[in-house]
């Protein structure tokens, strides 16, 4: 399609290459080692994940992308400890983890705020569980609420907030525990395009300013490239790592970069990986078998 020749997504400017070198020297926060998961279903065993291995470094932003059903949610749920792995292991700061814990924060696609608690009490939930008293929890919670810009809504109930606001509270609630890694499963999937763009820049701002490593699942290619340092591409049946792409778009990111050559090159690569060209032929090559259902002498006989 493009008349201009795109650079290869593997081509990195010196600045970007230098950044990745330094990034990989940072300590490893999360290490996933040969992780596999089988589900036993009445139809037999289903392999959702097959020997997935990767590492994330401190303060890195990793996006996970892949076709529907490739095991993205399964992966993040195992990382969060909500699901047990069949084999392999997950290590956080070099220690194997079992079961859920406050060291791995999670933001779900559905809004999982507690409807019976106000915004402030929602954010205080984890703080109080960690044994902090009411008063320090409250002060700390307010700081996190201010960070996501919702201090005016501290005493509102979740049902009084918009979807984007709810997700900001969910992020504040997860961050309040000061987890080592923040796991996000399509957190903006239910938001409209505009709110989504705003949430992306909020998240970038938060990520830049606090010590947090983020693993972010999305099915939106633009979102993945815009947010990520590296993108973990999975393929389906069974879910396996296809490629771990270093995004050549320089940091810090801004929406103008959405049309830069590096961005487009990366997007093209992701498209090729996720919708392989051979598969496209079947769908794009043929037209649907349609019969004209509008009379020739109709007032609007043609849409052109």
């Amino acid at each position: 399609m493009s008349i201009v020749e795109l650079p290869s997504y593997l081509e990195q400017s010196d600045k970007v290459r230098d950044r990745f070198t330094r990034l990989k020297q940072r300590p490893v926060i999360l290490e996933v080692d040969q992780l596999s998961k089988q589900f036993d279903t009445p139809q037999g065993s289903v392999t959702a994940l097959n020997k997935v291995s990767f590492k994330t470094h401190r303060r890195e932003f990793v996006c996970v992308i892949g076709p529907s059903g490739c095991g993205k949610s399964t992966l993040i749920r195992i990382l969060a400890g909500l699901e047990n792995e069949s084999s392999g292991r997950v290590m956080l700061d070099g220690n194997v983890v079992h079961g859920p814990g406050p060291d791995r924060g999670m933001v779900f696609q559905g809004y999982t705020l507690f409807p019976w608690l106000t915004v402030k009490k929602n954010v205080m939930f984890g703080l109080e569980r960690s044994g902090k008293g009411r008063v320090p929890s409250e002060t700390e919670a307010m700081q996190w609420i201010e960070l996501v810009g919702l201090e005016k809504f501290a005493n509102s109930y979740p049902h009084q907030l918009s979807g984007g606001m709810k997700q900001r509270v969910a992020i504040a609630r997860a961050l309040a525990n000061q987890p080592r890694i923040l796991l996000m499963d399509e957190p903006f999937g239910a938001l409209d395009a505009q709110t989504r763009a705003k949430m992306q820049s909020y998240l970038m701002d938060i990520w830049k300013n606090i010590d947090i490593t983020i693993l972010f699942i999305t099915h939106d290619l633009d979102e993945a490239i815009y947010l990520a340092d590296r993108i973990l591409v999975l393929k389906a049946h069974p879910g396996e790592v296809q490629e771990l792409i270093e995004v050549p778009v320089p940091q810090p990111r801004s929406p103008e970069q959405l049309l830069s050559p590096e961005f487009l090159a990366t997007k093209k690569r992701l498209e090729d990986l996720i919708h392989p060209p051979e598969a496209n032929v079947e769908i794009n090559g043929d037209h649907l078998n349609m019969v004209r259902m509008v009379a020739l002498d109709d007032e609007v006989s043609s849409v052109f």
Binding site: G81, G101, G105, G110, L117, R129, R173, N177, L183
Partner: peptide
Amino acid sequence: SLLEAALTLGADRLSLLFKVVIP
């Protein structure tokens, strides 16, 4: 998913019952 959210926030068994299930 509310129970799962509570688990990732560090809720133990007792607080799951008293702070999530009952409310």
